[in-house]
Design a protein around this nucleic acid. Structure first.
Lengths: 80, 80
DNA sequence: TTAAATTATACCCATAAAGGTATATATTAT
DNA sequence: ATAATATATACCTTTATGGGTATAATTTAA
């Protein structure tokens, strides 16, 4: 087993959005063009990821990775 | 020469903040613990980067990478 | 409870990121 | 204009990501 942080903001974001869209990991993998394994590691909070791969997935949900002040980040995460 | 996008949000962010802090690339490299070459590629808009390395630099400026709606992103970039 | 579907873990491989360093170009100050 | 500082480009090496696949384990549905 790994001890990644499934609760990190990116992992949570993708899991939540995918479920809201009623998609499986396989489908998300197909739609975004990233490998299935990547989707899984992403959702499980793997710490080291390539930014363009992450963006490839986030773009599907209309988002991208951007620098955000820590305070905003924590605020953002307060809303569950 | 490479044809990366120096104007991408992350590259611009780091360049601007570093200059505002009156630091050289070497100093930023030392302070953040990432390699000098990484700082350079980061500021020049290399598209494929490891998220944790990027965060290692962003953290120095009190920021982190987070998923952000495209609309917010463009809005954010309107403020130069 | 069982079967089907979804998600998680474990392996190998190719590719490229990141580090280091050395040289060239550009910017700044004298 | 010249020297000093800072930034950019180019090389090689190590390392680990991401892909693929095959097998567990877990969740969901019948």
């Amino acid at each position: 087993m790994n001890n990644w942080d499934r609760e990190n903001s990116i992992a949570k974001f993708v899991r939540d959005r995918r479920k809201k869209a009623k998609l499986t990991q396989v489908e998300l993998s197909d739609f975004t063009g990233v490998g299935l394994r990547f989707v899984r590691e992403l959702e499980q909070g793997k710490p080291n990821l390539m930014t363009d791969k992450v963006n490839q997935v986030l773009l599907f949900f209309g988002n991208t990775l951007t620098p955000t002040p820590i305070s905003d980040e924590t605020r953002r995460n307060m809303g569950k």
